[in-house]
Nucleic acid binder design. Structure first.
Ligand SMILES: Nc1ncnc2c1ncn2[C@@H]1O[C@H](COP(=O)(O)O)[C@@H](O)[C@H]1O
Ligand SMILES: Nc1ncnc2c1ncn2[C@@H]1O[C@H](COP(=O)(O)O)[C@@H](O)[C@H]1O
Ligand SMILES: [Zn+2]
Ligand SMILES: [Zn+2]
Lengths: 243, 243
DNA sequence: TATTCCGATAGTGAC
DNA sequence: GTCACTATCGGAATGAG
C-alpha cells in the first residue's frame, strides 16, 4: 500500500487501532494523534465518509453540500481544539493543580465551558484558544482528507526541516474557518502571488519562504537549525519561566 | 603571512623555489605551475615589478603606462601559451613520436614557428591555440598580479566546485587580450548585467551561474558532480579516442 | 508539500 | 586561494502474494 493511504485504516477500522494513537471516533470522524507531531500536541481529524475522504480541502466545502459538511465537522473541530487545549494545560500547569483535563466523566469536553474559573482564567490569560491551529495543508501528501489541529509551539523533534515549519506558517496552511474560498478570495490571493490552484507553486512557497519566528518575527532565512532552539526559548519564555 | 600573499615569494625570490614549480623567470616575470591546477596544464605569469604587483587587472593596463606594460607582458603570454601547448602536445601525442616539446635547446619556444610540419599540423588541426586560455580573474583572491594560462579541458581533480569552473568560463574570466576595458566596454557590460566594478556582484556570477559545458553547451545547472565526468568524456572524445 | 536514507551542494571560519 | 566542518538541499524508495 502506498504511503499516501497511510491514514486509511483509521477511517476504515478505527476500532482496531492502538488506543494511544486514537483520541476519539464515532461514525462520522476519527481523531488521532499525528504519528509525526510537529508541535507538542498535534491531532488529525479524519472524516470517515468514503465519498469525501479523497476530495481536496480547497473544494470539499464548496456548494450547499459543502456547507452542510462544514457545519457537521465544526463541532468536531471545536472538540479537538478543546482537547488540545486540555493537553496543553495539563502539561504546563497540571502538576501544580493535581487535576487533569478533560475530567474523566467528560472525555469529549462537552462541559468545557464549566471547567471553572481556575482553568479558564489561565486559558484566557495565555490566549490558548488562539495558540491552537486548525486547518489543512493546501497540497496534502496523504490522500485521506484530514484536518490538522495542533499547538503553535513547533518545538517537536519531529519538526525536521523548513517545509515542516512553513507548511503550518505560510498561506500553505489554510484555516478550517476560512474555507470554502470564494472566487473573490482566490483572486485576491492570486494578486498576492499565491495561486492555490497551482500545486507546484504552493509547494515552492513551503520550500523557499524564509523561516520567520511566528512569535517575534525574527527572520532566520534558511537557517532551520537556528530557528529550533529559538522556538524552544519562545516556548520557555511563555510557558515555563513565567509559571 | 596571509594566504593572500602566497605568490609573493615567487616574484621576490624565484631562484629559491622548487624547480618543478618554476617554469621560467627573468627580471620582469616569474612563470610557475599553479599549485592547484584547474586543468591539465595551468600556469601563472607573475609580473615582478613591486609597483604593479598589487594593482587590479581591471586598471593596471589603463593609460599609456598600462599600454607599455601590456606590450612588455605580451611576449611572456605568448611564451607561456606556447609552453602550455607543448605540454599538451607531449601528453597527447608525445609517446607516439619519440620527441618532446619544446626541444631542449629552445626552452622558451623562441623558434616555435619552426617546430615543423608534424607538430604544427596537429596543433592547427586540433585548434590548440584557441584551446589555451590566458587571462585574469575579475576579483583575484591572491594579491600579487597574475595571469592564468591554462588548457581548456577542466578535467583536473583540483577543480572541486562550481566557483572553480565558472571563474574561467564566465565573464569573471577576463582575457588578457581584452584588457584594458574601455569605458564603453564597461558600460556595455553593465547593460548586460555585469558590473566589473562591483566585486560582490562578480563573485555572485561565479557562485550562481549555471554549470554549462563549454564544449557542447549542455546545461548541468548546479550539478557539479555530473559535469566532471562529462568534461572527461569531452576530453577523451577529442584527444584520446580520436588518436 | 508523508518519512527515511544518502549523497551532493552550500556556507562558515581558520589559515 | 585551500581545507575541514556543518548544515542545507535534493532525489529515490517506500508495497506486495
Ligand atoms: N502513518 C501515519 N499515521 C499518522 N499520521 C501520519 C502518518 N504518516 C504521516 N502522518 C502525518 O500526517 C500528516 C499528513 O500531512 P499532509 O498530507 O501534508 O496534510 C503529517 O502531519 C504527518 O506527520
Ligand atoms: N601557494 C600557491 N602557489 C601557487 N599557486 C597557488 C597557491 N595558492 C593558490 N594558488 C593558485 O593561485 C590562483 C589564484 O587565484 P585567483 O586569485 O582567483 O586568480 C588559483 O588558481 C590557485 O590555484
Ligand atoms: Zn521569536
Ligand atoms: Zn559537453
Amino acid at each position: 500500500m502506498s504511503f499516501r493511504r497511510a491514514l486509511a485504516p483509521y477511517i476504515q477500522h478505527p476500532e482496531t487501532k492502538i488506543k494511544s494513537d486514537l483520541v476519539f471516533y464515532d461514525d462520522k470522524v476519527t481523531i488521532i494523534r499525528d504519528a509525526f507531531p510537529k508541535s507538542r500536541v498535534h491531532y488529525l481529524i479524519l472524516p470517515r465518509d468514503p465519498s469525501i475522504t479523497r476530495q481536496s480541502p480547497l473544494t470539499v466545502f464548496d456548494g450547499e453540500k459543502g456547507a452542510r459538511l462544514k457545519a457537521h465537522l465544526a463541532p468536531y473541530v471545536t472538540m479537538a481544539k478543546r482537547l488540545v487545549i486540555c493537553e496543553m494545560y495539563n502539561s504546563v500547569w497540571g502538576e501544580a493543580i493535581q487535576q487533569t483535563y478533560p475530567p474523566e466523566d467528560d472525555p469529549q469536553c462537552k462541559r468545557y465551558e464549566n471547567y471553572g474559573e481556575a482553568f479558564h482564567s489561565l486559558v484566557d490569560e495565555e490566549h490558548l484558544d488562539e495558540y491552537v491551529l486548525a486547518g489543512f495543508h493546501a497540497v496534502p501528501s496523504l490522500e485521506n482528507l484530514h484536518i490538522h489541529v495542533l499547538t503553535g509551539d513547533f518545538t517537536s523533534d519531529r519538526l525536521k526541516n523548513r517545509k515542516h515549519y512553513n507548511s503550518f506558517n505560510t498561506p500553505f496552511f489554510i484555516n478550517f474557518e476560512d474555507l470554502p474560498f470564494s472566487p473573490a478570495r482566490l483572486e485576491a490571493a492570486r494578486r498576492n502571488g499565491i495561486d492555490y490552484q497551482n500545486a507546484k507553486a504552493m509547494e515552492q512557497i513551503v520550500k523557499t519562504t524564509d523561516l520567520r519566528c511566528i512569535h517575534c518575527g525574527e527572520n532566520f532565512r534558511g537557517h532551520f537549525a537556528q530557528l529550533m532552539p529559538h522556538l524552544r526559548d519562545e516556548y520557555d519564555k511563555r510557558f515555563t519561566d513565567a509559571t
